[in-house]
């Protein structure tokens, strides 16, 4: 069976610094996968490379069997792979609604519209004319998720949704995941927060220093092994 998204021996580097070493990863239709790892393990680099922001060998990333490694980000989002970037990266001089509309720039057809996003995050409809900088961290994260959904992705990549948010807010943000998965969207969440990741994911990969150190279903993995794979102790 061809995987929805697959990386094979994926490498990435920033100048002389190699950030990823031979990452093999697979994602099936409708699946939710978590990638955990400490700061600097290469998680964000992995997502950026899949999205085309970092160079990669063509064969190292496959989408439905087609080599897409190193393709332009514009081409990758058009294929239905959308990223919620680390730090949210809203367009700060645009309003909430304009940010969401930017997500739909590639005009990919699908279930997500402004109305659907507003139903998912009602607070955004109230604040639709407000500019991004006037939002709370949680609301910004909702805009970032909504913007990526507007691209109607079949694969949603989420980079550190919980970063800098209070636990109660994190719960609100993650509460959106079931509705997203209900559309058949496959989800990859990158997290430093292990518990959060284990709670939502069907499978987990652990990264350390640019390599996959552990993978499996959450129920198969005990705390000791995760700690060893995460911290290298």
């Amino acid at each position: 069976m061809t995987a929805l998204l697959e990386t094979q021996a994926l490498e990435a580097r920033y100048g002389d610094f190699q950030a990823l070493f031979g990452i093999d990863l697979a994602l099936q239709d409708g699946e939710t996968v978590a990638i955990i790892g400490a700061n600097g393990a290469g998680k964000s680099t992995l997502l950026r490379t899949i999205c085309g922001l970092n160079a990669a060998a063509p064969e190292a990333v496959r989408h439905r069997g087609q080599a897409i490694g190193g393709a332009a980000p514009e081409a990758i989002v058009a294929r239905g792979i959308a990223l919620v970037p680390e730090g949210r990266r809203l367009f700060l001089s645009l309003t909430v609604e304009e940010n969401l509309l930017m997500g739909a720039y590639a005009k990919r057809p699908g279930p997500w519209t402004l109305q659907r996003v507003y139903r998912l995050f009602p607070v955004l409809e109230e604040r639709r004319r407000v500019s991004g900088i006037q939002l709370s961290g949680g609301q910004q994260q909702m805009v970032a998720i909504g913007r990526a959904l507007m691209a109607n992705p079949e694969i949603l990549l989420c980079d550190e949704l919980s970063l800098g948010l209070a636990p109660i807010i994190i719960r609100d943000v993650y509460a959106a995941l079931p509705a997203i998965k209900a559309e058949g969207t496959a989800v990859v969440v990158v997290e430093q927060d292990i518990n959060q990741a284990l709670a939502v994911a069907g499978r987990v990969y652990c990264l350390m220093a640019g390599r996959v150190t552990l993978q499996g279903r959450p129920e198969e993995l005990d705390r000791e092994r995760i700690r060893a794979a995460y911290f290298g102790v």
Partner: peptide
């Protein structure tokens, strides 16, 4: 305006 704010993120959505 989006590109002016953040060209890299704009690319992520197809610009």
């Amino acid at each position: 305006r989006a590109v002016s704010d953040d060209p890299e993120t704009a690319r992520l959505y197809g610009v």
